[in-house]
Design a protein around this nucleic acid. Structure first.
Lengths: 131, 131
DNA sequence: GCTTGACTTCGAGTGCACTCCAAGGCGCAC
DNA sequence: GTGCGCCTTGGAGTGCACTCGAAGTCAAGC
């Protein structure tokens, strides 16, 4: 923990887990699975050192995951970014497709939620009557 | 199919699947797993006959599922309903807890979506510049 | 009366996303 | 110098929700 303040801030895997809300297991899993842009830097001991860029990217992919993008597709996106400049149109296409799916799913969930709230209204009336 | 118009409308499993958007596999799975209120009626041939009540209940549980309620909890809810009158408060509690989770998750997804839309905005500017 | 097709059961298989384990390394505190 | 805790690896295990397969039944049409 005393190593935490290096010249440029870099985090241990536990700190990165803390910072991103993932577990250390998941962080290693994501790296193995090609979701990160590069292999994370290592200290001389072999321990991972996460840069701010790493953490920023991981936050991005947690947003994608939290909105339901499958791992496979996150990897595709990472592959595009890793490939460097020139494929921005493809990245855009991927993100737009995802956005549209999320919007639609959000709308569907909202509709279902309304139906559930209606049901709750019925039960509330019942239990009020009973009390 | 010519049997479709019985005295009181009852549906074959394929028709019920059509009506609910589930597969016949899933319908049988739900029944096996105790998600339905009773075992579905059978024709003399042993084939399932879904009543309108059955279909209504299945629609309700697809709404619960579509909003992320785990199978296990849907079963608990079904158990309560099956137990009959007197536990409305428990059912209400279960639904309210679910509603709150859904609302929160909806809000989180909306936030993540905004961040993703921001990213899309950046890419749109990039690709415009390139063109 | 034989084929066709929709249905039945039970159990096994699939895909996804983690999640955990065993065996071992490193560096600091006592 | 030894225990402690955090880290490493590869691979195996878990939980969820389906999804499929095999073998067989039944009613209807030709």
């Amino acid at each position: 923990m005393s190593v935490a303040e290096s010249v440029e801030t870099s985090l241990s895997i536990a700190e990165a887990a803390d910072a991103t809300g993932l577990t250390t297991h998941t962080l290693r899993y994501y790296e193995r699975d090609g979701l990160l842009l590069d292999a994370v830097d290592r200290a001389s001991s072999g321990h991972r050192r996460y840069s701010e860029d790493d953490v920023g990217w991981i936050r991005m992919i947690t947003r994608l995951r939290a909105t339901g993008m499958p791992i496979r597709e996150v990897r595709q996106y990472a592959d595009l970014v890793r490939a460097g400049d020139g494929n921005e149109a493809e990245r855009l296409q991927l993100l737009v497709a995802h956005r549209d799916r999320v919007r639609q799913q959000l709308a569907e969930v909202a509709t279902h939620l309304e139906a559930i709230e209606l049901k709750i209204g019925l039960y509330e009336r019942t239990t009020c009557t009973l009390t």
